[in-house]
Every structure is written in structure tokens, then in C-alpha cells.
């Protein structure tokens, strides 16, 4: 069953997102809202990783190196941050791209859970999708607020 591929993808992309949120938060700590919100949002992804444990036990989990996982699904995390107002904007945008990968991964798992009539997995996928949407909403809100100043007047 190929669900294991997506369990692996969810696991890894959530972990990558959590790590990247922390990197961006710490890197832009002079914006306290970025620092603290990124920490909170990273906590969401940590929770999802924990919730995946019983799922992985049941369906298995396949990771990179496996020929069945298409390479293009990999997404590298952010190891360091850019500087300045435009740098912050670009980092938030990268987080948004990562978050979108996480969200669509949960969408796919949600579909599989329905087909499997797996109530537990369905509930995890639904709740994780909702939390990922909150992560994306904040990133979108923050980018919208920061964009004009960063693009027009920042030194």
C-alpha cells in the first residue's frame, strides 16, 4: 500500500516545517511576533509528528531512497535566514511553500483514510489539516502586512 509513502512524507515534511519555523523565528528574533508565533506554529507540527506514530505503526512508513517515492516530493528546509525586511518576506514565503506541501500531503492522507474507513486516521488528518491551515493563514497575514514597507521603502 502506497499510503506508507505519504505517511513518510507527512512525517518528514512536518518535521522540516517545524525546524524551519524555528530557524526563521530565531533568525528574525528582532521581530518578536515572528519569533514567538513561529515557535507556537512549530509546536503544531511537533504535535502532528507525534500523532503520526500510531499511524506509522499500522501502515508503515517509507522514506527517501525508496524507489517508489518520487524525488520531486522532497523539500529542503531552511537552514539559515536571509537578512533585512525583504529577507524576512522571502523566508516567510518559503515557509508558506513548505506549509502548502504539508497541507496537500494531509489532503491526500485524508482521502486515503476515507477509502480505508479509518476513523482514527481521518480524525488525525482533519485536525492536522486544520492546524496547517492556521499556520498558512498566519504566514499569509504576516506577509501581507510586511510587503508594502519591505518592497517600497525599506533601505
Amino acid at each position: 500500500m502506497h499510503l506508507a509513502t505519504y505517511v513518510g512524507l507527512a512525517h518528514r515534511s512536518e518535521r522540516t516545517l517545524a525546524e524551519s519555523l524555528r530557524v526563521v523565528g530565531e533568525g528574525h528574533a528582532r521581530h518578536p511576533d515572528v519569533l514567538f508565533t513561529c515557535r507556537t506554529l512549530a509546536g503544531f507540527s511537533d504535535d502532528h509528528v507525534r500523532q503520526l506514530e500510531p499511524v506509522a505503526r499500522r501502515y508503515g512508513e517509507r522514506h527517501g531512497g525508496d524507489v517508489e517515492e518520487p524525488d520531486r516530493l522532497h523539500a529542503a528546509g531552511l537552514a539559515e535566514v536571509r537578512s533585512g525586511p525583504v529577507g524576512l518576506l522571502r523566508d516567510l514565503q518559503d515557509l508558506h511553500v513548505l506549509g502548502t506541501l504539508v497541507l496537500t500531503t494531509w489532503t491526500v492522507i485524508n482521502q486515503a483514510a476515507q477509502g480505508l474507513r479509518d476513523h482514527e486516521l481521518l480524525s488525525i488528518a482533519r485536525s492536522a489539516s486544520g492546524q496547517t491551515s492556521r499556520q498558512l493563514s498566519w504566514l499569509n497575514t504576516r506577509m501581507k502586512a510586511a510587503a508594502p514597507q519591505a518592497l517600497i521603502v525599506a533601505p
Binding site: D33, T37, T40, L41, R134, S137, W138, N140, T141
Partner: peptide, 9 residues
Amino acid sequence: HDLLTGAVV
């Protein structure tokens, strides 16, 4: 808003 994060509805 999301009361925890401030994300807009």
C-alpha cells in the same frame, strides 16, 4: 482573527 496566532479570518 485566530486568537492564538493573530492570523486573519
